[in-house]
Amino acid sequence: MAWLCSRTVLQTCRRQFFRNAVYSKEKPLPDPLDLATGLEKRELLAAAAGNFDPYHMKAIEIVRDSTRESPNLVPSAFKSRIVGCICEEDTAHVNWMWLHDGQPRRCECGHWFKLTEVAPLG
């Protein structure tokens, strides 16, 4: 009887320990890049490649002495893009204009702009 009792206790203890050991093995979360698909994944890949502005949405710094032959290049994935020119550094307003593919355009302040083709992300 003593043997039976102690064997029962020992077996129960062993099973408990075994179960706890299995449960305490942690499972990692899915890798963010593996889980992401579509546009989100392309965005993440662009960021991994060092491009934190894949949609070209941030302001670009313009060259002050641009001419018709060497205009400021505006990236766009389409035929036309709206451009806002901050003509001088202290200007409090933005001059908006349409910029079309193929022809450089001049803001009234004198800065030249030209559309360049870039590949779209989406």
């Binding site: 546009l39 965005e43 949609y55 070209h56 949405m57 766009s76 994935a77 389409f78 870039v118 779209p120 992300l121 989406g122």
Partner: peptide, 8 residues
């Protein structure tokens, strides 16, 4: 249609 913006 190609698109190049983050908005959905």
């Amino acid at each position: 249609m190609k698109k190049n913006f983050p908005f959905f």
